[in-house]
């Protein structure tokens, strides 16, 4: 089944000096849209924004870190019995699995109890 996911919230909530600077300039001067579209790097240079490889990489790392932290914060609000294995890993425990074997040899996992997580 396909699942559709929007990143609107995350891109709005993520802040970074370079990104915020560009967003501000776009708000103040809508003509910049076309200039960025025609020549992104040239426009960046013309505006005096320092955005080389070093800055790009830092921005990317910060974004990934922010996403990861945001995810973990969000997961904190999820009941542990909904995410038992994730909770065990986050708690530094081995993933404990209770397994039953059916008479035809199939493996059936049993949901861990709250106190086992």
């Amino acid at each position: 089944m396909k699942k559709r996911i929007s990143n609107s919230r995350s891109i709005k909530e993520f802040h970074h000096p370079v990104l915020d600077d560009i967003k501000d300039r776009l708000k103040k001067d809508p003509t910049l849209v076309q200039r960025f579209k025609d020549d992104f790097q040239g426009t960046i240079r013309d505006l005096g924004i320092v955005y080389g490889d070093k800055e790009k990489n830092k921005l990317k790392r910060d974004w990934q870190k922010w996403v990861r932290e945001d995810l973990r914060n969000k997961m904190e609000g999820v009941p542990k019995d909904k995410i038992p294995y994730y909770s065990m890993v986050r708690n530094g425990k081995p993933i404990s699995i209770r397994v039953f074997l059916t008479t035809d040899g199939k493996v059936r996992k049993i949901q861990p109890r709250e106190d086992e997580i």
């Binding site: 909904k82 995410i83 994730y86 081995p94 993933i95 404990s96 699995i97 397994v99």
Partner: peptide, 15 residues
């Protein structure tokens, strides 16, 4: 019939 398995995997991955 049943068994407990401890898988000491520290992969911080989605459930």
């Amino acid at each position: 019939r049943s068994l407990d398995i401890d898988l000491p995997l520290d992969w911080d991955m989605p459930e």
